[in-house]
Design a protein around this nucleic acid. Structure first.
Lengths: 218, 218
DNA sequence: TGTTGCTGGTTTGTTGACGATACTACCAAC
DNA sequence: GTTGGTAGTATCGTCAACAAACCAGCAACA
């Protein structure tokens, strides 16, 4: 009765299990086990794994199977850098395209961000900060950059959790994102992207610092 | 007797056929046909297609099969923009890391570029220009950005051929890349990436112009 | 004790067959 | 002449079984 290919299902289910840490890094993914768990065929798991491999979430070795890929700290930093470059591009588009309604939404989310900050809830600041950035993604309407950003984010969800917990990070996020939103509201693409560049520069610093706290395994 | 999975083969064979235009845009890719042509199983073609879909080179519709994806002009421009953002990031790394040997290589390729320009061979200017940029990729050692750039380039090989034929484009390429290489040689990351940004800005313009020449099907 | 070589079990890679779906051409009715 | 329905074909999605390769454990030997 499957009107459309189920592979999408298995893919996203596995995807979620990996990025949420349900399947730990370096853990093997035996095709048969997950086929039974998901109540589907091995071939579907197989295809899902192939896609996940291209996402950089798993590695597949011939005749040895798939396992969750271990992301090295250096790689995480590099990924942050790429994300920064893309979002900088994207914000300049957003500044040119933002409607009044868009600006209102951004303001609104920003207020929630302040609230979270004042409540001393860094985790929530991180979540809302991400929400703002995703809103900017939407506003920019840059499908291609969006595609890559989506792909990228999967790889650093876990790192992000750590860096947002660094002392002072929450304040910095609030301040810098405010600046970004301000410039976007003014329609100043140049300044907006410069502000975003700075946001990402300091996000990168925070990550590097977080990574040095101890040799954390991603 | 295949010691390792052949899927890599089928993938790259199909890949080449698509980017070189052997399989035309919108042309159907019937699994069975190519399985016979490559003398392999349908499952391999299937997996190769799944990967190509994520590369954005083919689209797969349930029960309708795969076909080479048609890249719209808007998409090509967006892709150029993303490429520009990534290479700008990457050049600043290259400026920091370039050794004397690297600089010598860059100079050498640059000379070949001048030669091609003076011979009035825009196609060759394009090819060599690309060679320089790939050299910069290597120097930057930014694996993550590189991964994405590789992925991206597959989608715009055909567009590139067109934009390099625009009048004056060859000269602009030579001039702007010289500037980039100069700054990289000086180790000035800031200026180098700014120069690269300009290069890509004008590459984008050239593409837009080329696209408007006539409604070319990619 | 340390190393080598075998052996059984486990997991993957491959294959062919079957059922499901969408497209197409034909025919009848209006 | 056009529209609507229907059968046939081509193609895809799914599945289960087989073959090849890897791995752990044990035994034999230096």
């Amino acid at each position: 009765m499957p009107a459309k290919p189920k592979v999408e299902d298995e893919y996203s289910r596995l995807y979620k299990m990996i990025v949420t840490g349900k399947i730990m890094p370096n853990e093997r993914i035996v095709e048969m086990d997950y086929a039974q768990m998901f109540n589907c065929n091995r071939a579907n798991i197989r295809r899902a794994l192939a896609r996940l491999e291209q996402d950089g979430l798993v590695v597949i070795e011939p005749f040895k199977g798939a396992r969750v890929r271990l992301v090295t700290p250096e790689e995480a930093v590099e990924t942050y850098e790429v994300r920064g470059a893309l979002e900088t591009l994207l914000v300049s588009q957003a500044a040119k395209l933002a409607t009044e309604a868009d600006k209102a939404i951004l303001r609104e989310i920003l207020n929630k961000l302040y609230e979270a900050r004042d409540n001393g809830d860094p985790m929530r600041v991180g979540t809302i900060g991400r929400q703002i950035r995703e809103e900017l993604w939407r506003i920019s309407s840059h499908k291609t950059a969006l595609k890559f950003l989506t792909q990228i984010n999967s790889q650093l969800i876990r790192s992000s959790y750590r860096s947002v917990m660094m002392p002072g990070r929450a304040d910095a996020i609030a301040q810098q994102l405010t600046e970004v939103v301000d410039h976007v509201s003014d329609g100043d693409a140049e300044k907006a992207s410069e502000a975003m560049r700075q946001y990402h520069a300091s996000a990168r610093e925070a990550l590097v610092a977080a990574l040095q706290v101890k040799d954390y395994v991603f």
